[in-house]
Design a protein around this nucleic acid. Structure first.
Lengths: 243, 243
DNA sequence: CGTCCGCTTGAATAGTTTCAATTGAAGTGG
DNA sequence: CCACTTCAATTGAAACTATTCAAGCGGACG
């Protein structure tokens, strides 16, 4: 297996990334087997398919979604730099959702076959992977509550707030503005709303001065206010406890 | 740490359990530190709280749910024999949801502090835990799609079908009938529906002869039909692949 | 016997979807 | 350089699904 040190992508960039710390990332990168560059709109992990590889988003954005029998989509989550995708296929044998790029992306590629080596020889890193899974489970529980019990306004505020907070955490917020390279359709499919209603609800939030979203950029003047409307907790991501 | 072999609960009962095989369960049981018996209605894991213990349901049923700021509930999943709960707190430091019993239960108790030992010395079992987490993630993705994009009828058929299949898998199906010790309120809170609408939709399914649910028992004459209505795949649970 | 809990029912209301059509911006080819 | 296409966002109106409110019923239990 090749061990390409990731010289191009300075670790500094990743300092704040969830969930990897600098030293952990450095370690992970020793498992790197290559880099993959894709244009927007590329589906690189597909529902129901096994995948011999895992990927980390180095640059660019994506979308994780399920396709329903009638052709509709359920967006599971938005993908952004620092996100690990493909663990499900690596562990369970096949993906339960697809992953596609919504901008050009640069992906860090790991081999699934190295995973076992990691469990055997690096229990701390294996623990990290389980931690990742647990964090994802936490998020999905929150999403479930949002779709199940909240109004359109709350859902949208929740989703935008979440995206903002995650991007802020990875250092991509600039002057209360973060990249937002998704379509209203994507947001609608993430929240179980129709496109029309999503559009109208977005306008309400805009009129209230809670946020602005245009030209792939999201501006949030007061995160606390947005969080309040989305029933979001502003607390920092839970930190990994010492065992 | 005490290592109580689980003589009372014959392993035979667990043969079909997801995800533990007989030998795996036997191993897990070597970590057992005790058994906990609770009446119905006991909340033994609480949202936002750390927990020094993990539990496996040996007998009885429960409910995993989140409480919303307005007092409403989102049921995350139904808990049944064989289910492991509390992993989230063990890994992340605190629970994202509460767990309560809906019947008298008998729980197998593990110490969180033993978890690290497991990762260090038993990579196969650590892998199993990650596998468990991935399966849960899979399920939550399916649930999200159900709440986001399906009608009340489909949601209810989906939920009943899922419960039936899971209980069948652990050997609790008898003559096309499984235990169903939950309330309509619980089902409504799991599916993001009002109690009234859940009630009326259940009657439609009953009238169609798709199922009968009364006195804590669920009768499903034709699982394929129920699955079809709930857009459920009848395929067996994905098996753990060899690494 | 009275109370509580879970289930059931009807009617009014509200939130969301669906349908249908328009606009503007960006990209393509002759 | 201009018609033509495409994609994303927008708007209004009609239709519908699910919620809320309110009330009643039956069984279990002290």
């Amino acid at each position: 297996m090749a061990r390409t040190p990731c010289t191009e992508c300075p670790l500094r960039k990743f300092e704040l990334f969830t969930p990897f710390t600098r030293s952990e990332l450095a370690f992970m990168l020793s498992f790197k087997v290559g880099e993959l560059n894709l244009d927007r709109g590329a589906t690189f992990l597909q529902e129901g398919m096994p995948s011999p590889q895992l990927y980390t988003f180095l640059d660019g954005f994506g979308l994780r979604y399920r396709t329903l029998e009638n052709g509709e989509r359920q967006v599971i989550n938005f993908a952004m730099p620092g996100d690990l995708v493909g663990l499900q296929a690596a562990i369970m044998g096949e993906m339960a959702h697809s992953v596609e790029s919504t901008t050009p992306v640069r992906l860090c590629v790991f081999n699934r076959s190295d995973l076992w080596r990691l469990f055997e020889n690096h229990p701390e890193r294996a623990y990290d992977l389980t931690w990742l899974s647990a964090v994802e489970e936490h998020f999905l529980g929150e999403a479930l509550a949002t779709l199940g019990r909240r109004t359109a306004r709350q859902r949208i505020a929740w989703a935008l707030g979440r995206v903002y907070m995650r991007l802020h955490a990875v250092g991509l917020a600039d002057n209360k503005t973060v990249p937002m390279p998704w379509r209203q359709r994507d947001l609608a499919d993430a929240l179980g709303l129709s496109l029309v209603h999503t559009n109208k609800t977005l306008q309400l939030l805009r009129q209230d001065g809670v946020m602005q979203w245009a030209a792939d950029r999201l501006y949030v003047p007061d995160l606390a206010e947005l969080a309040r409307r989305g029933a979001l907790e502003l607390e920092p991501q839970p930190r990994r406890p010492l065992i």
